[in-house]
Simulated scan of single mutants.
Amino acid sequence: MADHNELGKEGEEVASNYLAKHGFQIIDRNWRYNKKELDIIAFDNDNLVVIEVKTRTSDGWEHPKEAITNSKIRFIVEATEAYVIEKDINNEVRFDVVTVMPVDGEWKVEHIKEAFHPTL
């Protein structure tokens, strides 16, 4: 597996642990719909939260959250619609982003609630 894949996997693990520590109930990870993937799906109280995780070694080129393009948002929303239908979920849906970067031997985690809203 390529180094960037290993980093991404490790970042998702860090993000999951962070979210669980902050009261999120993780219900799914790396859920796939066609070629689209939802990184983390969780409940935060009564909200279904779809979390996109972005892991980078640094923010030298761009902050990890800037890597979430409009087409990525469309993919996430489309996969979320499929997930909600398949799992028969009727809760409100929120889209968060968690960025993860190693800083001085530790993980820096930033959680952005309501990072984006689906556009019609």
Rank of each mutant, 00 (worst) to 15 (best):
Thr80Ile: 10
Ile76Thr: 11
Leu48His: 12
Leu48Glu: 12
Phe75Ile: 02
Thr55Ser: 15
His63Ser: 09
Arg56Tyr: 05
Asn70Asp: 15
Thr57Phe: 02
Ala67Ser: 14
Glu62Met: 03
Ile68Glu: 05
Leu48Trp: 11
Asp59Glu: 14
Asp59Gly: 12
His63Asn: 12
Val50Lys: 01
Tyr83Asp: 12
Asp44Thr: 00
Asn45Ile: 00
His63Tyr: 08
Trp61Met: 08
Phe43Ile: 05
Ile68Val: 15
Ile76Gly: 04
Glu62Arg: 13
Val50Tyr: 00
Asp59Cys: 10
Glu81Thr: 08
Gly60Thr: 13
Lys72Ala: 14
Glu78Trp: 01
Glu62Asp: 04
Ser71Phe: 07
Ile51Tyr: 03
Thr80Asp: 07
Lys65Cys: 01
Thr80Ala: 12
Asp46Ile: 05
Phe75Val: 03
Glu52Tyr: 05
Val50Asn: 05
Arg56Trp: 04
Gly60Ala: 15
Trp61Glu: 06
Gly60Val: 01
Ala42Asn: 07
Lys54His: 03
Ala42His: 02
Asp46Ser: 15
His63Pro: 08
Asp46Tyr: 10
Glu52Gln: 07
Lys72Phe: 02
Thr57Gln: 14
Ile76Val: 07
Lys54Ser: 00
Ser71Leu: 03
Leu48Thr: 04
Glu52Val: 01
Val50Pro: 06
Pro64Val: 09
Phe75Thr: 09
Phe43Ala: 04
Pro64Tyr: 12
Asp44Trp: 13
Asp44Leu: 14
Ile68Ser: 06
Asp44Pro: 01
Arg56Cys: 05
Val77Tyr: 10
Lys65Thr: 11
Arg56Val: 00
